[in-house]
């Protein structure tokens, strides 16, 4: 938490519209770097879901991301040129803002390529979910990161701003995930999916973590530990039932694998700002997998949240 306070000094306010936040508003927090092309669809997706206000940290974008965001009426924007890695992959910046603006609100912390799907999201706004969580005395809501990919090499279809990225990237791995409990923070550690299958075939232990807890009824005492994989205090990580039943949960659909991916991977590799010496990005930039086809004959095509619930990738729990 001290890190968060310290690191939030790196943030410089560009557009602060937080005075417009009303007591029960649902807030979204996000760090972005050169994501201009993704943002129009991203913002609309979450607006439709019922998110009331967006709080962005722009990490030295040079593609107009900052200008675009500053223009949006429901966005408050901070900017930093600081190091993403030194800020624990952006989490310190967000922890600082969460502490200041998130207290008492339901807060959603996602990346610009992550799209939350929860039970009944096609018929109920996110307020229905958070009201229900409140009534049930639940403070945190889990959503597994689900990597979505197109069929064929990534560069065959060009993504245009404002479009649904899952129109082409509509495939996913439905049942090759492994779960472990992390004894330190009590969270689950989930790996698997297409990234493990293709990029980390021979060293699955290094595959990226897919467990996330993006939706939290924030309190100034809380803090994310590493990305949104784990929180403190530890009780917030108890998003799973270990006596046999199922708690309600969602999925974060991950639109990472679009045609911009290769370029992004190379760029990120040069910046060396990612986890474990950017091992993940090294794998992506590997010439052998330079034009990877993540699709296999057992890939599942995305239909709706019912399908994800049926496949056991998320659960309605006892919400009906």
């Amino acid at each position: 938490m001290l890190r968060a306070v310290w690191k939030s000094r790196e943030l410089q306010s560009v557009r602060n519209r937080t005075a417009r936040i009303k007591p029960n508003d649902v807030l979204l927090f996000c760090t972005a770097r050169n994501e201009q092309i993704r943002l129009p669809y991203f913002l609309n997706y979450y607006r439709d879901m019922g998110v009331d206000h967006f709080i962005f940290v722009d990490n030295a974008s040079d593609d107009g991301t900052d200008i675009y965001l500053a223009d949006q009426e429901d966005v408050s924007l901070w900017r930093t040129d600081g190091s993403y890695r030194a800020a624990t992959y952006g989490v310190d910046w967000l922890n600082g803002l969460l502490r200041r603006y998130g207290h008492g609100h339901w807060t959603l912390v996602v990346d610009p390529d992550e799209f939350l799907v929860y039970p009944f999201c096609d018929t109920r706004p996110v307020r229905a979910l958070t009201d229900w969580l409140d009534e049930s005395g639940i403070r945190s809501f889990s959503a597994m990161l689900l990597d979505m990919y197109p069929k064929g090499p990534l560069n065959t279809q060009t993504y245009t701003a404002g479009c649904d990225p899952f129109e082409s990237a509509c495939w996913f791995d439905s049942g090759n995930y492994t779960l472990k409990k992390n004894p330190i923070y009590g969270n689950l550690w989930i790996q698997g999916g297409p990234r493990s299958r293709v990029f980390f075939a021979d060293r699955p232990e290094q595959a990226p973590a897919l467990n996330k807890i993006p939706l939290v009824k924030w309190n100034w005492r809380y803090t994310y530990v590493s990305s949104t994989h784990a929180l403190l205090p530890r009780g917030l990580n108890q998003v799973y039932e270990d006596w046999g039943g199922e708690k309600a949960s969602g999925v974060l659909m991950h639109a990472k694998f679009l045609d911009m991916f290769q370029q992004k991977a190379t760029e990120e590799l040069h910046r060396r700002q990612h986890f474990a010496g950017s091992a993940e990005y090294l794998a992506y930039a590997d010439p052998e997998t330079a034009q990877p086809d993540l699709w296999c004959e057992w890939s599942e095509k995305y239909k709706n949240w019912h399908q994800l619930d049926e496949l056991g990738l998320m659960s309605k729990g006892n919400w009906t």
Partner: peptide
Amino acid sequence: VFAKAAERRTWGRAGLYMHSRMPRPGRE
């Protein structure tokens, strides 16, 4: 409908291990 929901919450789907169902050994 509600009985099914309660069963999902308290009993869960046998053989499923996921991010909101991780039964400890013996409680699967």
